[in-house]
């Protein structure tokens, strides 16, 4: 299914919950309001015409220092979906505020979201509601802060950790 038809399908189905859609050089993206996020993802996975059975990537963006990025919520969580059956892709995004950085977990839809969401929590400090085990993935437990946030000082020294017990 061509990308513009995918976006059309999502707009028809969810109406105002699809905040905007765009197509940049063949990459089709839909920005979704957070309450509808899981429904949109589930539709992308289960609808036979869409059948996005692979969550290729789940990541986040911090728009703190982005030119023109101060007019919306600070963080954006991005889902890259792919359909093996139809060989098409679609990106789903949702924006969250810094003081309310919680997104519903997609672990129930794609098990791979488990580690991807742990990585996003580790690097950006965005929580995933309903995640079974939201621990840091790359950094260690004693690490203070979330290093891919734009306001994390690049030369901050972390406390050294002792030998494992």
């Amino acid at each position: 299914m061509p990308g513009d038809l995918i976006l059309q399908r999502l707009r028809d189905r969810f109406g105002a919950a699809i905040l905007q859609t765009h197509d940049h050089r063949g990459d089709h993206t839909a920005e979704v309001a957070r309450p509808a996020l899981l429904d949109v993802l589930r539709t992308c996975r289960d609808e036979p015409d869409l059948a996005c059975d692979v969550l290729m990537d789940l990541t986040a963006v911090d728009y703190l220092a982005y030119a023109g990025g101060d007019d919306g919520p600070r963080f954006e969580v991005v889902y890259h979906l792919y359909s093996l059956r139809h060989n098409h892709r679609v990106r789903i995004k949702t924006r969250v505020e810094e003081d309310d950085a919680i997104v519903p977990s997609a672990v129930g839809l794609w098990p791979i979201a488990d580690w991807l969401e742990r990585e996003v929590w580790d690097m950006f400090g965005i929580r995933f509601e309903g995640h079974p085990d939201l621990r840091r993935l790359l950094m260690y437990e004693e690490f203070v802060g979330h290093p891919l946030r734009k306001d994390y000082p690049i030369n901050r020294r972390q406390p050294l950790i002792g030998p494992p017990h």
Binding site: M139, Y140, F143, Q158, L160, I161, G162, P163, P164
Partner: peptide
């Protein structure tokens, strides 16, 4: 890396 540091310390010990 910081995560490797405790392992290096243990090897040294």
């Amino acid at each position: 890396s910081h995560k490797m540091a405790p392992v290096l310390k243990r090897i040294y010990d």
